[in-house]
C-alpha cells in the first residue's frame, strides 16, 4: 500500500512536469509544424541562467521570473533566427520533396540543441550542480504518519495546475488564443482574415519556450543541473505528446500524466534501469494501437 502511494504521488508530480514538456512540444507542432528537439536544450539554458542569478545572490523568485522571460525570448529567437528563414526557403531544391520539408526543421533543431549544450558547457563549465527549491523537499508528516509526498511535490503540482488553467483561459477566452487556434487549423484562411500568421507562429514558440523553461526549473531540484540532464525529459515529453495525440493540447497534458504514472510505477515495482525500455515499448504500443493519439484527430496524420 505504502509503495503504491509513493509511486502514485511521484507519478503525479513528475507527470505534471512531463505534461508541461509535452504541452510545449505540441504548441510548436500545431503552431509551426515542427517537433522541436531543442526544446529541453532551451530549458537547460534558461535554468542555468536562473542558477547563475541565484549564485549572484538574487532571490529565488526574481531568478524564476527572469528564467521564464528568457525562455520566451529564446523560443522567439529560435523561430525568428532559424525556423522562419528555413520555411521561407521552401522552393529550394531539397525542400521540394515532401519528406524533406518535415526532416530539415528536425535537423535544424538538433543543431540548436548541440550549440546550446556546448555554450552551456563553455559558460558554466558543464559539471553537475544542484538547483534550489523554493519549498522544503523533505517528506510531509500528518500527525505521526509520514506521507509519501513532499512539500515540493505539492508546489510542482500547484504551479503546473495554475499554468494549465491560465493556458486554457488564454486559448478559449482571448482573441490571440483564438488566432493561434485558427492558424494551427488553417494558416491560409487565417492569413486572409487579416491575422499575422508569422507573429502568431513566433508567439507559439515563445509560449512553448516559457512552458519548457518552467519544466526545467521544476525538475532540476531533484535531478541536478548539467548540460545533459534534461535530455530524458525531452524523450518522455515526446512520448507523452505522441500518446496524447500530437495535435491536441488536452491530449498532451493527459499523455504527460500517463507517462508520469508509467515511469513511477516501473521505478517502484521494477528497477530504474528498465525505464528506457518501458518508454520505448510504451511509445511503440501507442504508435501501433492508436497512432493518432488518445485525443488526436484522425485525418491530420497522413499514412
Amino acid at each position: 500500500m505504502n509503495s503504491f502511494l509513493t509511486a502514485f504521488f511521484a507519478g503525479t508530480s513528475q507527470g505534471a512536469i512531463y505534461a508541461l514538456v509535452s504541452l510545449g512540444l505540441v504548441l510548436v507542432w500545431r503552431g509551426a509544424g515542427v517537433v522541436n528537439f531543442a526544446q529541453m536544450g532551451q530549458a537547460m539554458f534558461t535554468t542555468y541562467i536562473a542558477s547563475q542569478l541565484i549564485q549572484n545572490e538574487y532571490s529565488y523568485w526574481s531568478a524564476f521570473v527572469i528564467a521564464l522571460i528568457s525562455g520566451a525570448l529564446l523560443g522567439a529567437l529560435v523561430d525568428l533566427g532559424i525556423m522562419r528563414p528555413l520555411s521561407s526557403r521552401k522552393n529550394s531544391l531539397l525542400l521540394n520533396s515532401q519528406s524533406m520539408r518535415t526532416t530539415i526543421p528536425v535537423i535544424a533543431s538538433l543543431g540548436i540543441l548541440g550549440v546550446l549544450k556546448a555554450l552551456a558547457g563553455i559558460f558554466w563549465a558543464g559539471e553537475e550542480r544542484g538547483f534550489p527549491a523554493p519549498v522544503p523537499t523533505t517528506g510531509l508528516r500528518l500527525g505521526n504518519t509520514d506521507l509519501a509526498i513532499t512539500g515540493f511535490d505539492l508546489f510542482v503540482i500547484g504551479v503546473v495546475f495554475l499554468t494549465l488553467v491560465l493556458t486554457t483561459i488564454f486559448f478559449t477566452r482571448t482573441g490571440m488564443g483564438l488566432a493561434m487556434r485558427a492558424s494551427a487549423l488553417n494558416p491560409e484562411v487565417t492569413r486572409l482574415s487579416g491575422i499575422r500568421v508569422g507573429s502568431v507562429r513566433t508567439l507559439s514558440w515563445a509560449i512553448s519556450g516559457t512552458a519548457s523553461s518552467l519544466a526545467g526549473l521544476l525538475v532540476t531540484p531533484k535531478t541536478n543541473l548539467s548540460p545533459n540532464t534534461l535530455d530524458l525529459l525531452l524523450i518522455v515529453g515526446f512520448t507523452a505528446a505522441v500518446v496524447g495525440g500530437l495535435t491536441s493540447l488536452a491530449g498532451s497534458v493527459l499523455g504527460g500524466f500517463i507517462l508520469g504514472y508509467v515511469i513511477a510505477f516501473v521505478n517502484v515495482y521494477s528497477a530504474p534501469e528498465n525505464v528506457f525500455l518501458a518508454i520505448l515499448i510504451f511509445l511503440l504500443l501507442a504508435l501501433f494501437l492508436r497512432p493518432q493519439g488518445i485525443l488526436g484527430s484522425k485525418e491530420v496524420r497522413r499514412v
Binding site: 528537439f37 524523450i235 515526446f238 520505448l280 504508435l287
Partner: peptide, 25 residues
C-alpha cells in the same frame, strides 16, 4: 514504414537511448 517525419525521428531517438540500456538490463 508506418511513421513519417517527426514521428520517425522521435521514435528512433528513443530507440537510441533504449537499446544500449538493454545491455545493462
Amino acid at each position: 514504414a508506418r511513421l513519417s517525419g517527426p514521428y520517425l525521428a522521435g521514435t528512433t531517438l528513443v530507440m537510441a537511448l533504449a537499446i544500449p540500456s538493454i545491455a545493462i538490463r
